[in-house]
């Protein structure tokens, strides 16, 4: 564990709490892509199967439980209490275009051709693109509630912080994880446009609006 990874995980945790807070305070899941949230459940469940057979640490154990539990809770809220505030008509990204390629790539690029390692690779690749339906929705509506942009910013910061974590681990432990690094760079890259608008507008106190 190093500071970058710890802060990254903290940002990830914070992003989820911000999202749940947004839903409860605005009594709405407006502007949130159900598809992205469903993909995150798939990401966490396929990656954390090792909860059953690998002990890492108490921290690792509880974080995994939190990510699986909270992502399922978010889906539950979106399908029950806040269902009327959800608009499937704008959440139209075709996730089969993500699931298909991620499956194929996971079958090709993995550290061992075993079910759990393939699922681990799949979860890494899927996570890297899981935000696309959300960014697509944002692009379609052209604007977002400020709290939703804080959620996305925290999520982007989480991924960005994993990059110095890998650099640090390379120099201190000599480990390199090409799959996680490649997917992580792609994932962080997807946030660049968002971050530009976030920094130049939201952090200056303006509303998040995309140029027409």
């Amino acid at each position: 564990m190093n500071l970058f990874r710890f802060l990254g995980d903290t940002a990830h945790l914070a992003s989820i709490l911000v999202l749940i807070h947004k839903m409860h305070t605005t009594k709405s899941c407006r502007g949130i892509s159900f598809k992205t949230q469903a993909l995150y459940v798939a990401v966490f469940v396929t990656r954390y199967l090792d909860l059953f057979y690998r002990w890492v640490s108490l921290y690792n154990f509880f974080m995994k439980l939190f990510f699986i539990g909270s992502s399922c809770y978010i889906l539950f809220l979106m399908k029950t209490k806040f269902r009327p505030t959800q608009d499937p008509a704008i959440d139209t990204f075709r996730i089969e275009y993500l699931l298909g390629p991620c499956t194929v790539i996971a079958l090709i690029f993995n550290y061992k051709f075993s079910p759990t390692e393939i699922l681990w690779s799949f979860s890494i690749f899927l996570e890297s693109v899981a935000i696309l339906p959300q960014l697509f929705l944002l692009q379609r509506t052209g604007e977002a509630e400020t709290i939703t942009t804080h959620y996305l910013a925290a999520l982007g910061i989480y991924r960005a912080l994993y990059i110095p974590n890998w650099i640090y681990r390379y120099f201190t432990e000599g480990v390199v994880d090409p799959i996680a690094i490649t997917a992580g760079l792609v994932q962080t890259g997807l946030y660049i446009d968002f971050f530009y608008v976030y920094v130049t507008k939201v952090l200056q106190g303006q509303k998040f609006e995309l140029p027409a």
Binding site: E173, V175, D177
Partner: peptide, 10 residues
Amino acid sequence: GKECSHHDEL
């Protein structure tokens, strides 16, 4: 391959 180092990451 070696036991992958990445498995301690979240």
